[in-house]
Design a protein around this nucleic acid. Structure first.
Lengths: 120, 120
DNA sequence: ACAGGTACTTTGTGATGCAAGGTACTAGGT
DNA sequence: ACCTAGTACCTTGCATCACAAAGTACCTGT
């Protein structure tokens, strides 16, 4: 295992949360999401995004409609379903809890390194 | 997919980071880690922790020594290797970047919901 | 010997990130 | 009509990983 792989692991699941967030703002299609996530420094590629959107759709959290484009193939514009909105709220709560748990662990390490000099 | 599954996905990778953090404080064995992670509200079970420790060991980031116990079987006490310390630092940087990316996405959603009333 | 507690290990399953390759629509040039 | 380039969506195959469940092994007390 290497750093890159570990970073991939860390992003898992969180990506899903971020995508739901972006869709919650209004109708978007996949390339919009890729742009937004890239600008937020969340690396993501097509091979990850499309299957993920299909999963979220099949779970009933997203819906989409086809919209013709004047400069290429039609686009799938996604929206959150009512169920999806509830799910997003739950995901956001989970995220904050998780971030808080990590903060707790980091704080404990810092506290212990002040009083315990046995660690290099 | 359900909420529980999504929460599991979100924890992936981050668990690894937290375990490295705990081991960085000094010698600990698996049950110690389980206690600490549970008290930080990071749910984790044996079937997850032991294979993860083996992976980290095989990657060269951990080392361990057997220590006899007066009340049961011997314990594996883990320590971070020098490589493991470097890896932990990289993971911590990744964590902060990731948390920051998520914050960016959430902030954008909040900003847009103020000015754009088209979302229910 | 046996039961109970502690600690570490292994097997099998299902989920999923991602690279790579594929399909399909449009516009513009020849 | 044909080709190329750009855009957008989809699929296949692989490697990784969390977890449940079952297993192994050591110690103490009766």
């Amino acid at each position: 295992m290497n750093i890159e792989n570990a970073q991939v692991q860390m992003r898992k699941g969180i990506l899903e949360f971020c995508i739901l967030h972006i869709i919650s703002r209004g109708e978007v299609y996949a390339s919009d999401m890729l742009d937004e996530l890239t600008s937020a420094k969340m690396m993501v590629v097509e091979g990850t995004l499309y299957p993920l959107l299909t999963r979220l759709k099949n779970s009933g959290w997203l819906d989409y409609k086809w919209v013709e484009s004047s400069s290429g193939p039609p686009r799938k514009y996604y929206v959150l379903t009512d169920e999806g909105k509830i799910f997003l709220d739950a995901m956001q709560a989970t995220w904050f809890e998780l971030a808080d748990s990590v903060k707790t662990v980091i704080r404990r390490t810092e506290e212990l390194s002040k009083t315990d000099t046995s660690n290099s």
